[in-house]
Simulated scan of single mutants.
Amino acid sequence: MFGSRNSRGESVTCIACGESIPRSDAREYDKHGDRWDRRDKAFEHLCKACFADLCQQPRDGLETTLDAAGAGETDRATFLERFRELSEDDANRD
């Protein structure tokens, strides 16, 4: 239910930095984006430091940008183009 008992004490390799770390100190990464469907799946791993650097994106202003880009009100291609432009504008301001 809470993962394999065989994985306790196991070492894994961080896919970002290559460091070998205890499985208990790692974060699972599912390149298919569906980490909850665990059947017949092998996960890759990130150390906690790489996970924090790579996976935690700022969300300040996200809802405002989604709204300004027309989320839910326009077709996908138009929305993505507007979102990209608005995101680039925000990045250039920093």
Rank of each mutant, 00 (worst) to 15 (best):
residue 23 R to T: 06
residue 42 A to K: 15
residue 62 L to Y: 01
residue 29 Y to K: 02
residue 50 C to N: 10
residue 66 L to S: 08
residue 54 L to N: 14
residue 24 S to C: 02
residue 72 G to I: 01
residue 55 C to R: 13
residue 74 T to H: 05
residue 28 E to T: 07
residue 71 A to L: 13
residue 50 C to E: 06
residue 32 H to D: 15
residue 63 E to P: 01
residue 29 Y to F: 07
residue 34 D to G: 08
residue 73 E to T: 07
residue 53 D to H: 11
residue 23 R to H: 07
residue 78 T to M: 04
residue 67 D to I: 08
residue 69 A to K: 05
residue 32 H to S: 09
residue 48 K to R: 09
residue 40 D to P: 08
residue 49 A to W: 05
residue 68 A to Q: 14
residue 78 T to I: 09
residue 48 K to A: 11
residue 66 L to F: 08
residue 39 R to Y: 13
residue 24 S to L: 03
residue 32 H to Y: 11
residue 61 G to E: 05
residue 28 E to P: 04
residue 27 R to C: 12
residue 67 D to K: 05
residue 42 A to R: 13
residue 63 E to R: 02
residue 47 C to F: 00
residue 37 D to K: 10
residue 40 D to N: 06
residue 70 G to I: 00
residue 28 E to F: 08
residue 48 K to E: 15
residue 49 A to S: 15
residue 57 Q to H: 13
residue 21 I to A: 03
residue 23 R to C: 07
residue 34 D to K: 07
residue 21 I to H: 04
residue 45 H to Q: 01
residue 64 T to W: 06
residue 44 E to Y: 00
residue 62 L to T: 06
residue 75 D to W: 03
residue 41 K to E: 12
residue 70 G to K: 03
residue 77 A to S: 14
residue 63 E to G: 03
residue 31 K to E: 15
residue 22 P to M: 00
residue 45 H to R: 09
residue 38 R to V: 11
residue 75 D to G: 01
residue 65 T to V: 11
residue 49 A to H: 08
residue 71 A to H: 08
residue 43 F to T: 03
residue 41 K to M: 09
residue 67 D to E: 14
residue 34 D to Q: 08
residue 67 D to Q: 12
residue 30 D to W: 00
residue 52 A to H: 12
residue 29 Y to R: 10
residue 51 F to W: 12
residue 47 C to P: 02
residue 35 R to P: 15
residue 37 D to C: 04
residue 38 R to A: 12
residue 68 A to F: 06
residue 22 P to C: 01
residue 71 A to P: 05
residue 55 C to A: 13
residue 77 A to N: 13
residue 42 A to E: 15
residue 28 E to I: 04
residue 71 A to W: 01
residue 45 H to K: 03
residue 26 A to Q: 01
residue 73 E to N: 06
residue 78 T to D: 14
residue 47 C to K: 00
residue 59 R to I: 12
residue 64 T to E: 15
residue 50 C to R: 01
residue 26 A to G: 06
residue 64 T to S: 04
residue 38 R to I: 09
residue 48 K to S: 07
residue 41 K to L: 07
residue 31 K to I: 07
residue 37 D to M: 08
residue 34 D to I: 02
residue 49 A to P: 05
residue 55 C to W: 11
residue 37 D to I: 07
residue 32 H to T: 11
residue 51 F to T: 04
residue 21 I to P: 10
residue 74 T to W: 01
residue 42 A to F: 10
residue 24 S to Q: 02
residue 41 K to Y: 12
residue 78 T to S: 14
residue 21 I to C: 03
residue 22 P to I: 00
residue 75 D to V: 02
residue 31 K to F: 11
residue 77 A to Q: 14
residue 49 A to V: 09
residue 56 Q to F: 11
residue 65 T to R: 15
residue 36 W to M: 11
residue 34 D to N: 12
residue 22 P to V: 02
residue 72 G to F: 00
residue 39 R to I: 08
residue 74 T to Y: 00
residue 62 L to W: 00
residue 29 Y to N: 07
residue 73 E to V: 03
residue 53 D to K: 10
residue 56 Q to P: 09
residue 68 A to Y: 10
residue 33 G to L: 01
residue 42 A to M: 08
residue 34 D to T: 08
residue 63 E to C: 01
residue 34 D to F: 04
residue 72 G to E: 04
residue 72 G to T: 07
residue 32 H to G: 13
residue 32 H to E: 15
residue 48 K to W: 09
residue 42 A to L: 11
residue 35 R to A: 12
residue 67 D to S: 12
residue 75 D to R: 04
residue 77 A to P: 08
residue 74 T to I: 06
residue 44 E to L: 12
residue 28 E to N: 10
residue 51 F to G: 09
residue 55 C to M: 12
residue 71 A to D: 13
